[in-house]
């Protein structure tokens, strides 16, 4: 049993079958080396427990409904939930529009087909309803965010028309109206957009730096080539002159 790491690990992590565990217990009673190894591994595990990651600050407040079914519920506001929430909001709100969200090798596809026949083929519905790829370019993101923002405005108008929905509140804090929640979501959309713009600007700056570097390299290369040509030309002229001088002197 000695020098069997798998057995020792299984024992330390409590993943040995009962019979094997009892057998190893009996072995430990007589083997100081294995006892020491087990103790060392447990010590390492104990030390590992001291490592705690920083408490994440996701920068959002969680919205929870009451135990009673809420008339309307909203997403929490985690940053990553934003795009997902937006797509879901669009999908749910446009359920009557027969919206389909699909993800495959082509990426995320949001397909809309007003009053589309469920049996209609994908190609036909794509042509009729339009297919929107959720792209990763800043422009595409921006247009999607704009669409989300427009949708939020619609929802806000609807919320104002319907009055405040009960049952939606912060986990710890006062109740918020739908309008307030929408305002916060819009703020997050704005933050997301700002971030996308910043990243885009950084990418542009990087491209400009790359172009500038390539340009400087090209100049350097041209200068070197010109120098070589100049040296070669001078040498050729000297040779030609020398040839003519020699011929003239021979003719004389």
């Amino acid at each position: 049993m000695c020098n069997d790491p798998e057995l020792i690990l299984g024992y330390v992590y409590g993943e040995l079958p009962e019979a094997e565990r009892r057998g190893f217990d009996a072995h430990l009673a007589t083997c100081a080396a294995c006892r020491g190894e087990v103790a060392e591994l447990r010590a390492a595990r104990g030390h590992l427990a001291a490592w705690t990651p920083p408490e994440p600050d996701f920068g959002f407040q969680i919205v929870r409904g009451n135990s009673a079914p809420a008339a309307r519920r909203w997403w929490p506001a985690p940053a990553w939930g934003l795009a997902a929430a937006a797509v879901l909001v669009l999908a749910a709100a446009a359920a009557i529009a027969n919206v389909e969200v699909r993800y495959d090798a082509d990426g995320l596809v949001v397909r809309t087909g007003w009053a589309r026949d469920a049996a209609a083929s994908q190609g036909a519905s794509a042509a009729a309803g339009g297919v929107t790829q959720v792209a990763t370019t800043p422009e595409a993101w921006r247009s999607q965010i704009t669409a989300i923002d427009a949708r939020l405005r619609d929802l806000e108008r609807a919320a104002t028309r319907d009055g405040v929905a009960p049952g939606t509140q912060l986990a710890s804090g006062p109740r918020l109206s739908d309008a307030e929640i929408i305002r916060r979501v819009r703020e997050m959309v704005g933050q997301s957009e700002t971030r996308q713009q910043r990243e885009f600007a950084m990418q542009i700056a990087q491209v400009l730096r790359d172009v500038d570097r390539a340009r400087q390299l090209d100049f350097l290369q041209i200068r070197q080539t010109l120098g070589q040509h100049r040296a070669q030309t001078t040498s050729d002229v000297a040779k030609t002159l020398n040839y003519y001088v020699t011929r003239v002197s021979q003719e004389k």
């Binding site: 997403w75 929490p76 985690p78 939930g81 879901l88 909001v89 999908a91 749910a92």
Partner: peptide, 12 residues
């Protein structure tokens, strides 16, 4: 099936 609150719960 489109229940956003359920995905919310998974995130939480």
């Amino acid at each position: 099936r489109g229940d956003s609150e359920s995905f919310n719960e998974l995130v939480l």
